[in-house]
């Protein structure tokens, strides 16, 4: 078990180094940082001095080493645009994105898994067919259209919910949360729904397909032939076996939700990392873009490690294989 975790950790380190390298390549090859920072009136000597101070004249590998070391020490550099430390900018935006992503994921799981089970158990029923048809429409419409439609209906026509921003927030330590005020929740609902709908349909269809597959398997037939009560048959025998592959996808989904909340955040002007990333692109703010890349990759790696550990917890076959 310890060896298994160690192996995954080492793999993760390699992934992070690769991503850091990509992020660093951005600095090095996309535009000239000095000309970004300086204006037309800056003298050539000043530019050269700046170049020397920033270490841009050093060899590529030395610069990469410095970049990585600074990252590890928590020094993410300064934004070209705002001149603030990038670390502070990202840190102030992380809570919004994480809360949005988590709530969206919870919506997709809490709705997707039960409906997935239901539609698997009654594969030909009228309700099942209606759900499948509705969700097919849900997948086919792009996220931003869903967002705009929700804004139009609940924000503009009915006027029930706010259409942008985070609403009332509470400061807990360094974490700005909108989960503790009624106003914050009202602001959260629409973007979370928008972001969650696609994941919901995906989760539902995946659970349905896997569950139907498991229900056809020999051990379910054998358990039925032994007269195991249907409740246990479905929720103890079948569901656990269904979840093994589903967990992988859900893990990847969560990474995806965090990384690709950009569209939703821009539709709802949600002050998260995605919006920050969009602003950074507009102003060619390369340090922020690079760090965003690294942070997102870190989330992916973290989530995948948790998924792998969950795997081992659920499936005894993996436990033995890894223990030897």
């Amino acid at each position: 078990m310890a060896f298994f975790i160690l192996k995954r950790l080492i793999q993760s380190i390699f992934v992070m180094i690769a991503v850091a390298f990509l992020a660093f390549s951005l600095f090095r090859f996309v535009g000239d940082p000095v000309s970004q920072m300086t204006g037309v009136e800056t003298s050539a000597e000043d530019s050269a001095r700046l170049r020397e101070e920033l270490g841009l004249n050093d060899a590529f590998i030395v610069q990469f080493g410095r970049f990585t070391r600074n990252m590890l020490q928590g020094d993410f550099g300064y934004s070209y645009r705002t001149r603030q430390p990038v670390a502070d900018m990202i840190a102030s935006r992380i809570p919004a994105t994480l809360e949005l992503g988590t709530v969206a994921l919870l919506i997709s799981l809490l709705v997707g898994i039960p409906t997935g089970i239901f539609t698997a158990l009654r594969p030909r029923g009228f309700v099942t067919q209606s759900i499948l048809l509705t969700t097919l429409v849900g997948v086919s419409i792009p996220t931003f259209v869903i967002g705009i439609m929700l804004i139009f209906l609940f924000g503009v026509q009915l006027g029930w919910l706010p259409t942008f921003g985070r609403g009332g927030t509470v400061q807990i330590g360094g974490w700005t949360s909108s989960l503790f005020t009624f106003d914050g929740w009202r602001a959260l609902i629409l973007p979370a729904l928008t972001l969650g709908v696609y994941q919901l349909t995906l989760t539902m269809r995946l659970v349905r397909a896997e569950m139907m597959e498991v229900l056809r398997s020999d051990f379910i037939r054998f358990a039925t032939a032994r007269g195991i009560p249907y409740r246990s048959l479905y929720f103890r025998h079948a569901l656990a076996n269904t979840m093994v592959p589903v967990i992988t996808i859900i893990g990847l989904q969560f990474g995806g939700v965090i990384a690709f909340s950009i569209v939703t955040e821009s539709v709802f002007q949600w002050p998260g990392m995605g919006l920050l990333f969009l602003e950074s692109i507009r102003f060619v703010d390369i340090p922020v873009m690079g760090v965003y890349l690294v942070v997102i990759a870190f989330f992916f790696v973290l989530v995948n490690m948790i998924v792998d550990l969950l795997y081992v917890a659920i499936d005894p076959r993996l436990r033995v294989r890894e223990d030897g």
Binding site: D218, F219, F222, A223, G227
Partner: peptide, 30 residues
């Protein structure tokens, strides 16, 4: 009636047991 009066044995022992439950759990449950 299934299990209590009529039981069944399937062909492939590799696939006819739930891989995620111990033998004890499956026997006790039955």
């Amino acid at each position: 009636l299934r299990g209590r009066r009529i039981s069944m044995i399937f062909q492939d022992p590799q696939t006819s047991l739930n891989p995620l439950m111990t033998i004890a759990d499956q026997l006790i449950e039955t």
